[in-house]
Design a protein around this nucleic acid. Sequence first.
DNA 1: GCCGTTTTCGGCCCGACTGTTTTCAGTCG
Length: 572
Amino acid sequence: MAVTNADIAAIFNKVADLLEIKGENPFKVRAYRNAARTVENIGKSLAQLVEEGYDLTKLPGVGHDISEYIKEIVTTGRLKKLEELEKEIPSHLVEMLSIEGLGPKRIKVLYENLHIESLEDLRKAAESGEIEKLPGFGPKLIEKILKGIKLAKKEGKRFKWAVAEYYANELVKYIKSIKGVINIEVAGSFRRKKETVGDLDILVTAKDWEEVSDHFIKFDGIKEVISKGPTRSTVILKSDIQVDLRSVAKESYGSALHYFTGSKAHNIAIRSIAVKKGLKINEYGVFKGAERIAGLTEEEVYKTVGLPYIEPELRENRGEIEAAYENRLPKLIRLEDIRGDLHVHTKYTDGKHTIAQMAKAAKDLGYEYIAITDHSKHLTVANGLDEKRLRVQMEEIDRLNEELDGITVLKGIEVDILEDGTLDLPDSVLKELDIVVAAVHFKFKLSSEKQTARILKAMDNPYVDIVAHPTGRLIGEREAYEVDMQKLLESAKERGCVMELNGQPERLDLNDVYSKMAKEMGVKLAITTDAHNTFSLNYMRYGINQARRGWLEAADVINTLPLKEMKKALKR
DNA sequence: GCCGTTTTCGGCCCGACTGTTTTCAGTCG
């Protein structure tokens, strides 16, 4: 089994953790983390790049040493450097980094003085009072550690963006009820529309911070107040989401918003440019010596470093700064650009509403068209359609189109891709449809070679227009199946197939990295909702979020086209 | 360990908050 980019990134992150505990130069540690991030975001398979003899040092954050390490991992599946580090430092120590209040320095002290190597050792030593004898470890810290051990299992929990959105809206509404609040915005990964959100960072400017902060910590959904300071307060909600509320003066709002929106990597890159220009950027503004030269708006902040405004969704240091310099930032797609939905279900299978109801709801959204794509017969749990029932549905759609005004209903199917890559319905009926969406719904555990071959074969069928949720992942529930996305996209390009960006909040599939890769390879996408009821036609906005993170413009997405042109774009 | 429109050596973003401290280290984002 080939080494994946995720494997390589995991190795570099582990090296970084161990080096940190060892007490290595923090910039060296950062170099490994940067390399890990590059590897995760590159899209293309590093194993393949190595095979092609590509010069890896061209990748950002990858120099001579790390380039050699990547080659070593790809060819041997291991990294000697990591194995040596693990001999030196027990690798279980890394687990302790997840405990609030314990960082590399304290872990090192605990290991060297008390030989604490695991969470269990840590708990025993904390309870027996041994830790308290160490300098710098007072009673409050020990209490925090004990609490942290219990929480360690839940550690790293992230929330789907749509879930975070609910709490964000509630909190903003609650905080806004204070009259003195001037500006309020949820920043952080939420504002960058990341598919999952770890915590909510809310920024406010207000006449009286004390009043806002006192009000904030009385919010009904709060489980615990972590800290409350003169500019920042942190709480944990009952739903375990951490919320940071931060206040700045009005004139610093732009620089603070930039700072708290991140990403960290983007901010570091921007600040580094500022340093080279003799400027200092912090959340209070842009400074030339002691003089504040900008900070009211984000635009101002970017201007001081010679850049145009960069949309939050792009701020991941994945090339947006270079693109901004060269004036080739994408004009990101917006919800208003969408003219129709190409993947929805009805009562015929596992949907909740009729074709007419779905069509009306789509029209109310201002759409020109909606494609009915119910499941095919293999998906028995969803009451999938056989040819006979599909033909009944097709007739109903024909009748409906005669009655309807202002919206066109397209005849379609979400046809199952069987294990051997053939389709669940015969060509004789597929060819009569306006649109065929093909999808994998079972046998997720095939090898990458088999899964890739399976989908490639389905794409060979000339009636397949769109490959739905191409990696099959469900955020937080199911990993993507193994598949060679590079090959899928190459063949989509060759055959004129469209790839789906499914807007279901737990799918968002293709993800941002693959969406960007598809765009760069010239593959068109369809952003769909996979709606099973009229309400979830609104999931389009989640799809748009992900699309924007993937640098997509309206021209990259076929359902921004008017009906006639969209149908032409589907032809292959 | 990476990087270069001042540099191939000497930098590497910046501040808030906590806890344990008499002035600051560690952690966090």
